[in-house]
């Protein structure tokens, strides 16, 4: 049967759905808050039913009915196999190497996939202070596949972040090895409202692999403060089906905790 693509979806929704496509049913995923939470729960409700979530605050393999507010929302332990501790999740699963995918976000992401969630300006004298690492540094250091969902704005994509909170490839293909990190060549995938980029392990730099429907490479350049390489096999992100949009709105985020721009579900 031919797919019934929806023509009624927001950019946010497609970002979440596209990110979810990188998750397989056999993956163990550490959840973060925001759109990543939407993407992961969407994956679990559609193509990746076997997926197993862990959450930094200590929840191991919960069955989340809909998106929680934060990683410490009491709903995060819903029907979990174990409600444990932060050490059990970030230490005994993430650091131990038993988690396949981590979701991260931040104020800045640079051409090497480094993330800043600490501050803008001189770190000893910050002009703007953000929350800080949380579990992100540990996840970026130890997990072999990192997914990032973010708005594509110039200020968010500098050539070099002002503070590396969570390391990508640091300064090039061997940056992580030189720094002493055990996972030397992680996959890093960035899904924005303009495109999908991933790290080319041979250069240690982000490369545009797909464009969002209707977006041009020039638009990506105009909104990025470095010039990303462009894949010779450039693709276009597949739009969501009507069914996917329905699941996203009605089951994953019915209260519009994260999907702010899309219409409310009638109740």
């Amino acid at each position: 049967m031919e797919k019934q693509y929806s023509d009624n979806y927001t950019r946010e929704e497609l970002m979440a759905i596209e990110a979810s496509r990188f998750i397989k049913s056999t993956d163990t995923v550490i959840l973060g808050t925001g759109l990543p939470m939407v993407a992961a729960i969407f994956a679990q409700k559609t193509h990746a039913r076997g997926i197993n979530f862990v959450v930094e605050s200590g929840s191991i393999d919960p069955i989340l009915p809909s998106v929680p507010f934060t990683v410490a929302d009491p709903i995060i332990g819903y029907r979990a196999i174990k409600t444990g501790s932060l050490r059990e999740v970030l230490g005994c699963l993430v650091q131990r190497g038993l988690v396949d995918i981590g979701f991260l976000g931040g104020a800045e992401i640079d051409q090497f996939g480094n993330i800043n969630s600490t501050c803008i300006g001189d770190p000893q004298n910050p002009k703007v202070r953000f929350p800080g690492s949380g579990g992100a540094n540990c996840i970026a250091s130890c997990v072999p596949k990192i997914l990032i969902i973010t708005q594509h704005e110039k200020r968010r994509f500098p050539a070099k972040v002002q503070f590396i909170t969570s390391p990508g490839y640091i300064d090039g293909p061997d940056g992580r090895k030189k720094a002493g990190l055990k996972v030397t060549k992680p996959e890093i995938i960035v899904v924005t409202d303009l495109c999908v980029m991933d790290i080319d392990a041979s250069t240690g730099r982000l490369k545009v692999t797909k464009l969002m429907p209707g977006i041009t490479v020039d638009q990506v350049y105009q909104n990025t403060r470095f010039r990303p390489a462009v894949s010779e096999h450039m693709g276009v992100v597949e739009p969501p089906t009507e069914d996917e949009v329905r699941i996203l709105r009605e089951e994953v985020d019915p209260k519009r905790v994260y999907l702010k721009d899309c219409p409310k579900t009638p109740r």
């Binding site: 650091q95 770190p123 250091s141 503070f163 990190l181």
Partner: peptide, 13 residues
């Protein structure tokens, strides 16, 4: 010992 933090600016400041 921990496996994180290496390569980050958390160590530099």
């Amino acid at each position: 010992p921990v496996r994180g933090l290496m390569g980050s600016d958390i160590l530099n400041y």
